[in-house]
């Protein structure tokens, strides 16, 4: 037996920081932001922050599954840049044939989704079937996609044909009932992600695989399939994020998506998902993404902090958010 067995279960009294930690951090940030600048809570600013969170957010939802399943994907930022470049090239190439219009936009979307699926599949295949460390595989593909987009862009910037830009622009800037599309898509992705994580067999299996893949295997879970699917889903979501990204500026360059992978991973961890796998929560990831975006936003809206220190403040808040939710009972 172990001594812990006879212990009573977690006492109901007191606050459960493990759950509340990220929410508290978010609330504190909102209060600080509102106090520092009157426009912080304006509809325009809230829309801005939420829509710009959408790219990283959509990717981070996928990343939550990969990390919960005991994996890691460093390639998503480069992958997004590459898919954006590809999407622009395809649309530019098809423009003379199809003319500017929604059919061409759908071709672009299809390109992004197919490319994302394939990219996720490649990562998953190398990690599961070829049994190479996820860190190494995705470090490799990260460099490959970054180089490919630089090569496609000839070192410069890939720009969507000007005629097409006004057609595709609404995907980022318009919406329904005053809510912009990126926010709507992000919300849909987050809600379905949360549902899958909590209530679908796939979410349960991913957590089981990340927790102990031997147990999962002995419990008739197809471990490779589950792992593979986490990477494929992430690839698809990178495609979705790219579909939101391209309409914003209509361009892709070697600097597109730089460090997105780390922001996505940071958001996942701030949200309470365990980096070593086995436990994940999508709603936490959403909060993590919002925390990261808000820090930037607040620093831009206030004077008095040297912009050189933005990174330091982000770092401190990330570490604090994780300390807040650490299990106090953790024994040495």
């Amino acid at each position: 037996m172990t001594a812990t067995e006879t212990r009573p279960s977690r006492p109901a009294r007191g606050v459960n920081l493990k759950v509340l930690g990220p929410i508290l951090a978010l609330v504190v940030l909102v209060i600080v932001g509102a106090a520092l600048n009157g426009n912080f809570l304006s509809a325009a600013n809230i829309t801005n922050v939420l829509s710009r969170s959408a790219f990283i957010g959509i990717i981070a939802v996928g990343m939550t599954f990969v990390i919960t399943g005991g994996g890691l994907d460093l390639s998503v930022g480069s992958m997004a840049a590459f898919i954006a470049g590809l999407m622009i090239l395809v649309m530019n190439a098809m423009l003379p044939v199809m003319g500017p219009g929604w059919p061409l936009v759908f071709v672009g979307m299809l390109t992004a989704m197919v490319a994302g699926t394939l990219a996720g599949f490649v990562n998953g295949f190398l990690i599961t079937t070829m049994r190479i460390e996820a860190f190494i595989v995705t470090l490799g593909t990260m460099g490959i996609y970054r180089s490919l987009v630089t090569w496609l862009a000839d070192g410069g910037t890939l720009s969507l044909d000007f005629g097409m830009r006004s057609v595709i622009r609404p995907i980022y800037f318009d919406g329904i009932l005053g809510i912009s599309w990126p926010i709507i898509v992000f919300a849909l992705v987050a809600i379905s992600g949360e549902l899958v994580m909590r209530r679908a067999a796939f979410g349960r299996h991913a957590a089981a695989v990340g927790s102990n893949d031997q147990v999962a295997r002995y419990s008739s879970v197809n471990v490779n399939r589950v792992r593979m699917l986490t990477y494929v889903f992430l690839g698809i979501l990178v495609g979705v994020a790219t579909i939101m990204y391209v309409p914003r500026l209509g361009s892709a360059s070697p600097s597109t998506g730089v460090l997105w992978e780390l922001e996505a991973i940071a958001a996942v961890i701030i949200g309470g998902t365990m980096l070593k796998g086995g436990f994940g929560r999508v709603w936490g990831t959403v909060i993590g993404v919002l925390i990261l975006s808000l820090i930037d936003n607040i620093l831009n809206l206030t004077d008095g902090v040297s912009p050189y220190l933005n990174g330091a403040i982000q770092g401190v808040i990330i570490i604090l958010a994780v300390i807040l939710q650490r299990d106090k009972k953790a024994e040495s």
Partner: peptide, 29 residues
């Protein structure tokens, strides 16, 4: 090492192997 997920509760462990039986799109808690 191979039988049970020590970091999870009894419910998740109990149904892990027979999860399809408890799933109709969503897991029936």
């Amino acid at each position: 090492g191979r039988g049970l997920l020590l970091q999870k509760g009894m419910r998740e462990n109990l149904t892990l192997q027979a999860l399809p039986e408890f799933t109709n799109w969503l897991i029936d808690h």
